[in-house]
């Protein structure tokens, strides 16, 4: 197990480093900008809100939270301590809710939407791509242009088109939200059904976009593998086609996992914008409302959380990769 443990520890160390850097960037970037929002918000706090007690509370909380009167290094330490305690302060646009409260209400929607969608899209896309590479001819002729088109359509474009066709024109699905407006979240069947119905369009728009890119990647990867020397050699030896194909696809699959890991950030970003089209109550819509409300604490926290989610997904995929890559297995015995 030594080889795998080394691999795991290496990836873990890398994960920790990326988390630290991402956190630091999240802290330092806004403070380096010409219009430093941290200072600006504290300065104009008085005009920003109509609620007088709210202004006072946020102002005090804010000065304490970001320690704007202290040197940058102290600010960093204080910010780090607060974040570790889950304390992101009050949301400016949704006062008196705290940022942690706003985010914990929306993060599960995003996780429940994006991760299944990306995984389903990845599996379907890879299967289709592999089939196209193996069957060639008619299937490939149809799949390739469709995939090219799908992968070139921006996620928000796909979301808008699905919304217009299936929600506005056909009225099969609702146009917006995560559940019916008239309902209060509860454990009833009606509520669950409402959630499922609202889930469909955002889910499928992300799945379709993912399929496009993955199918193209898998197709060219599998074509490359099918022409590799080991395949020719195996054919010479008279090994059955079905067995060769299993080898081929396992080899073609590995780079696809790396590809997924490397593009997870881009995918999540696209999906966040798609969420906005459907007013899905996840992090994408939260970001939009934070932008519209000039809500710096909320933006800062949301971007940090999204980054962490992407980093965790990346880390998990790396670990998975280590489990199935034969070269790492070989390192274990050797």
């Amino acid at each position: 197990m030594k080889g795998y443990r080394d691999y795991f520890l290496k990836k873990l160390a890398w994960f920790v480093v990326t988390v630290v850097v991402a956190f630091t960037l999240n802290f330092i970037l806004p403070r380096l900008m010409p219009g430093d929002p941290v200072a600006a918000i504290v300065a104009r706090m008085a005009q920003g809100m109509s609620n007088a007690t709210g202004v006072q509370a946020v102002y005090e909380q804010y000065t304490e939270l970001f320690a704007t009167d202290q040197p940058l290094l102290n600010q960093y330490v204080i910010y780090l301590r607060n974040v570790l305690n889950g304390d992101f302060g009050y949301s400016i646009s949704q006062y008196p809710r705290t940022v942690a409260d706003v985010i914990s209400a929306s993060i599960w929607w995003t996780i429940a939407l994006q991760f299944p969608a990306i995984i389903v899209g990845w599996i379907v896309g890879n299967t289709l791509g592999a089939l196209a590479a193996y069957l060639r001819k008619g299937f490939d002729k149809v799949l390739l242009p469709v995939s090219l088109f799908l992968s070139n359509l921006p996620a928000f474009g796909m979301a808008t088109i699905l919304l217009v066709i299936f929600a506005v024109n056909l009225r099969w699905f609702p146009t917006s939200g995560g559940y019916d407006y008239a309902m209060v979240p509860s454990a009833s069947w009606e509520f669950v059904w409402s959630v499922i119905v609202h889930y469909q369009l955002p889910f499928w728009s992300i799945v379709l976009i993912t399929i496009g890119g993955q199918a193209i990647g898998m197709r060219s990867m599998a074509i490359y593998e099918l022409n590799a020397d080991y395949v020719k050699y195996a054919r010479f030896l008279g090994i059955k086609d079905s067995k060769i194909i299993r080898y081929v696809f396992r080899n073609a699959m590995l780079p696809q996992i790396t590809g997924l890991a490397l593009s997870i950030g881009t995918m999540v970003s696209g999906a966040l914008v798609a969420e906005i089209i459907f007013s899905y109550p996840g992090l994408g819509s939260t970001t939009l409302s934070a932008v519209l409300g000039g809500d710096y604490p909320l933006i800062s926290a949301t971007t940090l959380i999204i980054t962490f989610m992407a980093l965790i997904a990346f880390f998990a995929l790396e670990i998975l990769y280590g489990l199935i890559d034969p070269r790492i297995k070989a390192a274990q015995s050797g």
Binding site: L25, M33, P34, P37, G265, S269, I299, S300, L311
Partner: peptide
Amino acid sequence: FTVIPSFVLLILISFSIG
């Protein structure tokens, strides 16, 4: 920067610029 989603950095920077 491969791992940290660039779009998120973009959001943060654009918002901060004002």
